[in-house]
Design a protein around this nucleic acid. Sequence first.
DNA 1: TTTGTTTGTTGTTTTGAACAACAATAGCCC
DNA 2: GGGCTATTGTTGTTCAAAACAACAAACAAA
Lengths: 402, 402
Amino acid sequence: MSDTKSSRSPLGQNRENLRQHNLSVVLRLLHQSGAVPRSHLTSVTGLNRSTISDLVGELVSLGLALESEGQVGGSVGRPSLTVEPSPEIVAFAVNPEIDATTVGAISFDGRLIQKVRYPTQLQPDAQTAAQIAAKIIADMRSKLPAGTRIAGIGTAVPGQIRVRDGVVRLAPHLNWVEVPFGPMLAQLTKLPVLVDNDATTACTAERIFGAGRGSSNAVFLFAGSGGIGGGVVVDDVLLRGASGYAGELGHIQISSSKAVDYSGLSGTLEALVRRDDLLEAFRLDSATDEELDVDIQTTKDSKIIKVINHQIDELGRAVGVLATIFNPQTVILGGFLNSIFNFDQDRLLNSMRASSIKSAHDGLIVKSSELGTSAVLLGAAELAFQAVLVSPAGTELTINRK
Amino acid sequence: MSDTKSSRSPLGQNRENLRQHNLSVVLRLLHQSGAVPRSHLTSVTGLNRSTISDLVGELVSLGLALESEGQVGGSVGRPSLTVEPSPEIVAFAVNPEIDATTVGAISFDGRLIQKVRYPTQLQPDAQTAAQIAAKIIADMRSKLPAGTRIAGIGTAVPGQIRVRDGVVRLAPHLNWVEVPFGPMLAQLTKLPVLVDNDATTACTAERIFGAGRGSSNAVFLFAGSGGIGGGVVVDDVLLRGASGYAGELGHIQISSSKAVDYSGLSGTLEALVRRDDLLEAFRLDSATDEELDVDIQTTKDSKIIKVINHQIDELGRAVGVLATIFNPQTVILGGFLNSIFNFDQDRLLNSMRASSIKSAHDGLIVKSSELGTSAVLLGAAELAFQAVLVSPAGTELTINRK
DNA sequence: TTTGTTTGTTGTTTTGAACAACAATAGCCC
DNA sequence: GGGCTATTGTTGTTCAAAACAACAAACAAA
């Protein structure tokens, strides 16, 4: 609701905070980079060798990391031990969509180890989607080795989510309004469930494992089944806003056009850059992102090119506005936005430059997303991993029994 | 330039960091709240009584704080000691504008203790402005008691600033291009000089001492002599972007209008909501913000009302876009933006709602700035105080000698 | 083989926050 | 006014965690 005093954690730092923070820093490095030499941890954290030794030791004894004699070689001096995140920790990811509900199992080292797409005839209501997901998760659990520890379930929903309690406030494509999807799924699975917007989770995944790696300030624009969504990273932290609805970049008004989006707003990015308009131009009823991409890159039809160019111009405007506001290092485009960007990169960059101040777009890099369709699931799993990453020593994980 | 590894501080926290952080937290609380009972510090920081005693003791011995037997009373128990920020620390603030250069002396407890406005016939070039400022500062120093410690000089310039080295990249109203104003003033005064955009410093002041107090997520829109500027606070931190140019909210493109602003961009907030248009409607050559405000609040002329209403609508659009992007708790308007907001608040709110998603504007508060014209100077001084606040024990201050 | 370099390990030191016990000072109730 | 309770400040002690120092281990280059 509000972000004033009541919810604010104490500002002071004591010894517990210190230890927890350092454990968290090390674990996060492992989670994001995979296997790294221990010496790398000392240089990045700035902590003493013996301290890192101690911290890694604690992570190993907590079962969150593994240490092995690495195969680095090539450099002078005693070879450093290799530390890796434990692959025996798993999170589930759920993504209900208009025509299917997808569930994945993601290991702590960032691998999508199982994936099931369960198609539905109609858009599923929340109860149905929760039951489908719970069923698949139970099935997946039975296939995981006993002893695997489960961090929880992350859920990515195309709509506006109240993250605090997992309530879907509005998901127009699913026709869900004020549905407590998180608690529903938690009750069915007896696992902790966290819910967030699908574009937000995709953004998280790209930031950690994909095109956003190394950018502390980045803007993401994703086109998914639910229109255009976005995410913004400011100083390595995802922008959330006072009540958690920040980053609805599809709904920013960039023109005086009367075209209306699903939220009833006119002249927004989502109203102007529409996947359906492209499908119509190609006279297609439906297409996957991959099919559409091929069509776009190979078309010679001047009428279609006109439609694409128009969309590129509008997308460029939006990127320009966001560049002026955020002055990011990188802007990352996903879904069909990526396709039209690749159709004519210069056109988009020119449009962007015409809509932003020079200081803000100087040195700005616009690039494609890297993770494709698995970004949403990987990012959803991050929601569940977050608890362990924040408090490695204080988080109880559910142990899998067959 | 970039915000990657090279410039990043070590992630790990050691004991020194811990102490420095806690000292910094306490000092910042004092700086922002003024005199507070010591018991308040313990509850806010969550630190132990004896630790606070120790920290305050160190701040007192560093000459950064004062302890006295407070006059609280009224509650049970032993009365708490009162702690206040030392008034003997001073920062200077410089604000070159088109028709004058203003200099202020601000004490560490947030009082503007001296202020001199030096009018110039023409827009001053950078060297002239620096000489004027240096002269006034030398004069002010001679009036300050010997032993006063000086944190440095903060400079607020209407334009785009490279904060890192104090270079003014572009200040159209002053006609400065790529001028190293910071180093120039530092050489003349032998004091540390920091430079930032004037709207940004006003934003900082309102955030700490004015209408933004208590809002961890806020958007500021200020109309000054250099058009419309802005500032965004995300989780209590000012948005800076990858290279420090974030928050140029006057230049966001919100419409397809062909009207052009000073940066040559069309359809931007600054191009659509123009003070000059209001002056023209009133048939005025010039007016202070106060005079203009009176005129606006009392006008009955339907032609003028039409102009004002149009500006309100456009401003509302911009606020809506920013609400959708940031989902802030508060939006704060300054300068003549505040005047047109007060002319018809409901109209602005309606326009804002029509340009933003419900989740983002639900509970959003739009309000007026509180500090008026002194905001720019108070915020500029914050630039200089920042060093002491970040590292209370490690910052050397210049001692004033007559 | 020797030397220099880097890393891991172990025992010790140091720092800084917490803790516990006690003193100080207020309001409140009778 | 006296006793009671509540809150805060003070002091000496304890404890956790990071740094440090010294040494051993393992490599490359000379």
